[in-house]
Amino acid sequence: MKVGILLVTHSDIGKQLLLTATSVFGKNPFQVELLSVDNYDQPNDVKELAEKYVKFLDNGAGVLVLTDIIGTTPSNIASSINHGKIKVVAGLNLSMILNVFNYPEKTLDQLSIKALEGGIQGVSKI
């Protein structure tokens, strides 16, 4: 059993990051789905969709939900998903996805920490 991943982001950000991460890493080792949120979407409708996605993605190991900026509609939706085995991490960036891709066998708890670490490591002054 492997953790499933749902990206909940503003418009196309999730798709582009995922495509780039998959291309850089060489493959995407997870079952992933994308949910893009636009200004005209009704939060309640999107929350319902998010819950359906999570239900589909959870094969028993749980679902890691990655979302972009904290405090906005996508992250509010992500954090309101009603589901047993779920972890939500905000601040999505390329480094976060790549770090997660490196650990396909980790548990949901471990993977959420890898997401957090990868995301933070990706931000630095150069």
Binding site: K2, K15, L19, T22, N28, F30, Q31, V32, L34, N59
Partner: peptide, 9 residues
Amino acid sequence: EKLGSTSIG
């Protein structure tokens, strides 16, 4: 498929 495999195991 480019976004990730639709294999479910």
